[in-house]
Amino acid sequence: MVMALISPFVLLIGISFTLETGAQDEWVLSLANYQAVFEKPQYLRVLGRSLVISSLVALTTVLLAYPAAYFIAFHVRGNKMMWLILITLPFWTSYLLRVFSWKLILGYNGVINSALLWLGLIDQPLDFILYNTNAVVVTLAHAWAAFAILPIFVSLQKIDRTLIEAAHDLGENSIAAFIRVTLPLSMPGVIAALLLVFIPTVGDYVTPKMVGGPNGLMIGSLIQVAFGRLDNWPLGAAISVVSMITVTGTVCAFLFGIDRLKKLVARA
């Protein structure tokens, strides 16, 4: 199992240092693929955009999900499970169709435009709502909501309620008690949610392709093109290795930053 997991990545890194020659059994070692990735501006630009979009998505998803998770954890008595199921049920349906549905909602002849036209609020369809970065962010924030709600809910649910009561007894008002007790204690769930949304969305291929347009292009599309139309596996492998390292680096930097922040807060 462990071998099965590791060997593909060893091969991936290996092939990224070879040159596409067209011949089957010929292996030429080369750094050309990495040179291409670092010298042609499009690769790094798209990679950078992917990181920005995914960070925005992770933040949006968590911000939207937190109040709902908070409501279920603290204000619903009895059938919390029912609320959780109600909220996560749509995520059991086809990912492709959910993403596609946003195209129907945001499109030129889509639900929003045709509804606004029908109601007479606009004269012609708005064309700025689909095929851009915002559309990608909204769609992904919807598609990955369950990955944010569940960890946040679990960490809120675990909080010892007497701690919050203690804060109230010591004279803190609701907002201060939330900021100084509930929010810090729920941070593990928030951090897990941010990572669970950030990592997979960086490599998403479906959403940018369907609703992103030219400016919403993400790194997954470039990897796919290298393996598909260009049929240049070594180049695709090199893009993947660079993306993988960048994603891991970003995640480590984020966790390190959180750690520093925690120490600073503890000292203050």
């Binding site: 462990v2 990545f9 669970l196 990592i199 997979p200 490599g203 998403d204 393996f227 993306s243 994603v247």
Partner: peptide, 27 residues
């Protein structure tokens, strides 16, 4: 370490896992 290894596919974007496997099956 083992738990971490098992979780590895979750901390790698699927598209990269996909092409890594593609290369592996091919070789």
């Amino acid at each position: 370490v083992l738990t971490g290894l098992f979780a590895l596919p979750l901390v790698i974007p699927f598209i990269i896992l996909g092409i890594a496997l593609l290369i592996a099956f091919n070789s």
